[in-house]
C-alpha cells in the first residue's frame, strides 16, 4: 500500500513518497527521509504526518514516534518560516559562535527553540553542522552561511524578510 487515498501531502510529495518506499530492499528505509521531507512541507511532524507515514510504510505509529524522537532535526512543533540554526560547537565557539547566537536572540527577540510572533523566524542553537573551517556558521532552512559577523547576520535576516533567501529544501 504505497499509495494513500486521502493524503495530507501535496500531490508532488505524495508521488515522491509513493516512489520512495519502493526503491529500498526494505520499505522501512524510507522512514527517515519521509519524515524530513514531510517536515519540510508541513513545517513539523504533526500527528497526521505520523499517521500517514506509518500507514505508507506499514509500521505502527509508535514505531514512527520512537524513530522521530531520536533525530534532532525532526520536530513535533511548528517552527518559523525561516528556521535559524546557529552552531556553537567548538570550532564555531572559538570564532564567536555564542556572540552570533546572542545577537540572533537579541535581534529576533526569541530564545532557543523560540518562534517570532509573526512566525517568520525561529531560532535554534545546534551542534556542529560541518562548517568548522568557515566558522562561525549557521543554517537557515538548510542553507549554510559562513564566516558570520553580527553585521552579516543583520543583512541575512533582512534578506530573508525580503523574501530573497535561498531555500534549498
Amino acid at each position: 500500500m504505497s499509495t494513500v487515498a486521502n493524503t495530507i501531502f501535496s500531490p508532488e510529495l505524495a508521488a515522491r513518497f509513493d516512489h520512495l518506499v519502493t526503491i529500498y530492499p526494505l520499505r522501512r528505509s524510507a522512514l527517515i527521509p519521509m519524515l524530513l521531507y514531510a517536515q519540510d512541507e508541513v513545517g513539523y511532524i504533526s500527528e497526521a504526518v505520523v499517521s500517514e507515514i506509518a500507514q505508507r510504510i506499514g509500521i505502527l505509529e509508535l514505531d514512527v514516534r520512537n524513530v522521530l524522537s531520536y533525530y534532532s532535526m525532526l520536530r513535533t512543533k511548528p517552527a518559523g518560516k525561516y528556521n535559524v540554526q546557529v552552531c556553537t560547537n567548538i570550532s564555531c565557539m572559538l570564532r564567536g559562535g555564542y556572540e552570533i547566537l546572542d545577537h540572533c536572540k537579541h535581534k529576533l527577540g526569541i530564545g532557543h527553540k523560540g518562534v517570532t510572533p509573526d512566525g517568520v523566524f525561529s531560532l535554534e542553537e545546534v551542534e556542529c553542522i560541518g562548517a568548522c573551517c568557515w566558522a562561525p556558521a549557521m543554517q537557515v532552512n538548510y542553507d549554510f552561511h559562513d564566516d558570520l559577523t553580527p553585521g552579516k547576520v543583520d543583512v541575512l535576516f533582512q534578506m530573508y524578510r525580503d523574501g530573497q533567501g535561498k531555500d534549498v529544501k
Binding site: 509508535l62 514516534r65 524522537s69
Partner: peptide, 23 residues
Amino acid sequence: VFALGIQNRGSSAVIAPNVPAQL
C-alpha cells in the same frame, strides 16, 4: 503486542507507551 517503545535519546531516553498524551 508492541505497545511499548523507546523515545528520545541520551539521558532523555524514555520508555513510551503506544497512546501518547496528545492523542
